[in-house]
Simulated scan of single mutants.
Amino acid sequence: MVSVLQNVAIDCADAYELARFWSGVTGRPLHPDDRPGDPEIQVMLAEGPMLHFNQVPEPKTSKNRLHLCLRPDTSRDEEAARLQDLGASFVADHRNPDGTGWVILADPEGNEFCVLRSEAERRR
């Protein structure tokens, strides 16, 4: 017997608005039944588990123990800039002079995530 990963759940203050941000990040739609004000919203990813946003009353208080890592189809730096334009904030720079490394950003509610190098950048 095994378990199948159904979704990645993210606690948040405003499920709809945070799901809209992540919909913009991934380019994937919200679940068609989800509406503003719903306490649970899902982003329908093309493959793998869904992103599931749970509205909770308590605020985020410390560093994430689990986070998402994104591999863009453009360059890491172009994607980091695009995501900041969507509302992400810069947290830390782990880029190296040789082009390796990653950037840590936070979504509008402070959940950290990494932007990795694209596959093309990794082949260089």
Score class of each variant (00 low, 15 high):
64 N>S: 15
54 N>Q: 07
67 H>S: 05
14 D>Q: 13
94 H>W: 06
46 A>G: 01
21 F>A: 13
4 V>W: 06
42 Q>V: 10
96 N>W: 02
10 I>E: 07
121 E>Q: 15
122 R>H: 08
115 V>H: 11
1 M>P: 02
26 T>H: 02
121 E>G: 10
111 N>Q: 04
71 R>Q: 04
55 Q>F: 07
74 T>L: 08
108 P>S: 04
88 A>R: 14
38 D>I: 05
95 R>C: 04
15 A>R: 10
116 L>Y: 14
43 V>C: 02
80 A>H: 04
76 R>S: 06
82 R>N: 13
63 K>Q: 10
89 S>Q: 12
3 S>K: 01
120 A>Y: 12
78 E>I: 03
115 V>K: 09
47 E>K: 10
60 K>M: 04
85 D>K: 15
88 A>K: 12
90 F>G: 05
75 S>F: 01
14 D>G: 08
80 A>E: 07
104 I>H: 00
102 W>Q: 01
53 F>L: 01
75 S>A: 00
57 P>V: 09
115 V>S: 11
6 Q>D: 13
47 E>T: 11
82 R>S: 09
33 D>E: 12
111 N>Y: 08
119 E>Q: 14
96 N>P: 00
101 G>E: 02
40 E>R: 13
64 N>F: 06
103 V>M: 01
43 V>F: 05
86 L>Q: 08
96 N>D: 02
32 P>E: 03
36 P>H: 12
10 I>Y: 08
69 C>F: 06
87 G>E: 13
68 L>S: 06
13 A>V: 06
83 L>Y: 12
112 E>C: 12
7 N>C: 00
80 A>P: 06
48 G>N: 03
26 T>A: 14
112 E>Y: 10
83 L>S: 06
100 T>I: 04
52 H>F: 12
58 E>S: 14
32 P>C: 01
57 P>D: 14
4 V>L: 15
38 D>M: 13
107 D>Y: 11
8 V>I: 15
15 A>I: 00
114 C>M: 05
96 N>L: 10
10 I>V: 14
68 L>V: 10
120 A>F: 11
81 A>K: 08
123 R>P: 03
4 V>G: 08
17 E>W: 03
58 E>G: 08
117 R>M: 13
108 P>V: 13
87 G>D: 09
82 R>Q: 06
61 T>I: 08
